[in-house]
């Protein structure tokens, strides 16, 4: 297949809080290929945001990485020293956050913040020259009247406009990889679609590899070529979008798809959220899984290749015939 741009190997991490330790990621293995759009889907507590923060090395200080490696450009970025990390951030990886209102510094003009990103990426030149480049970037993310936006403060813009500015800042360095953590969750539905379209356009035109973190498998379906499903800090299913959506193999993926509103009859769906603070053996989905057996509760299922996909479930044969509703 294509060239790997990023590789995560048996990544395990936990949060250390005053009340105790909370496991966050368990033995994550995944690969991201150059130029693709991939979505990481999961509910709150699945570890998707923790994973995204590690991929960009912006993880919170109370997160402890117990083992594993993240290989980017031939080196393990988990072992990178501060200077190497800065190089990595200046030129190679960008990030977009959930809440556009908080992603821009309220005290500086939008233009100043875009130029700051350009300068950090190594672009030199006078303010006039940089302003021209910055306005080009603002135009590229479909902002009307870039020179007015350039002179605006963040509070003078709408949520959608701010998220476009954040995207402009993200592509200012012409990154290899762009990690977007729930970039549309804080926006109106109509704006959501436009932001997703913009991200797709950037991927297609600039060739930026994009990783989208979302809780919404519908958004993942609209955006991604590949979907990685996470549950309880584990990757439970990986596959091409159409295949995963049309024929989910893991009971949790099935549950996600069944929970999508599909005009009218909503399936009941078990939406209990399990407390992950209790470290457990076995499959993390077992307490909610209708197929869970004694083996599921005791032995952790490994990601296994099946029909060009990866699934971590002991009951694959039972799941395949789609003989049940989760």
């Amino acid at each position: 297949m294509q060239e790997k741009i990023l590789e995560v190997r048996s990544l395990t991490a936990k949060y250390v809080t005053r009340k105790g330790e909370v496991p966050a990621l368990r033995n994550i293995d995944l690969e991201i290929y150059a130029g693709e759009r991939v979505a990481i889907v999961g509910e709150s507590g699945s570890g998707k945001t923790t994973l995204a923060s590690i991929l960009t090395r912006l993880e919170p200080s109370n997160l402890v990485i117990e083992e594993g490696e993240v290989i980017f450009g031939g080196r393990n970025i988990l072992e990178a020293v501060e200077e190497d990390l800065r190089e990595f951030r200046k030129k190679e990886v960008s990030v977009i956050f959930q809440n556009p209102s908080e992603s821009l510094d309220p005290l500086y003009k939008v233009g100043t913040q875009v130029i700051e990103a350009l300068r950090a990426a190594g672009l030199n030149g006078g303010r006039k020259e940089l302003r021209r480049v910055a306005e080009d970037l603002l135009r590229k993310v479909n902002l009307p009247n870039p020179s007015r936006i350039f002179e605006s403060y963040p509070h003078e813009l709408s949520g959608g406009q701010k998220q476009r500015v954040a995207i402009a800042i993200a592509i200012a360095k012409n990154p290899k990889l762009l990690v977007a953590d729930e970039p549309t969750t804080a926006l109106d539905v109509s704006v959501q679609t436009k932001i997703l379209e913009l991200l797709v356009k950037i991927n297609e035109e600039l060739g930026v590899t994009e990783v989208l973190i979302t809780h919404d498998i519908g958004i993942a379906h609209d955006f991604a070529e590949r979907i990685i499903v996470m549950y309880g800090g584990k990757v439970v299913e990986v596959g091409r979008t159409e295949e995963v959506v049309a024929d989910p193999l893991h009971p949790y993926t099935k549950h996600l798809i069944n929970s999508l509103p599909r005009g009218g009859d909503l399936p009941p769906g078990d939406s209990r959220v399990v407390d992950f603070r209790i470290p457990r053996d076995g499959c993390p989905f077992a307490p909610r899984c209708p197929l869970a057996s004694e083996a599921c509760r005791k032995v952790e299922p490994k990601l296994t290749a099946i029909d060009g996909r990866l699934v971590a479930c002991h009951n694959l044969r039972a799941v395949k015939p789609q003989s049940f509703e989760v």
Partner: peptide, 26 residues
């Protein structure tokens, strides 16, 4: 804790620049 500080770090600014330009001013 604000995302804009994380974004400033993600731009590749030095810790000094992040603290002086963004954290201190806010």
């Amino acid at each position: 804790e604000k995302p804009f500080v994380k974004l400033a770090i993600a731009k590749g600014l030095s810790m000094r620049e992040v603290l002086m330009k963004h954290v201190l001013k806010n």
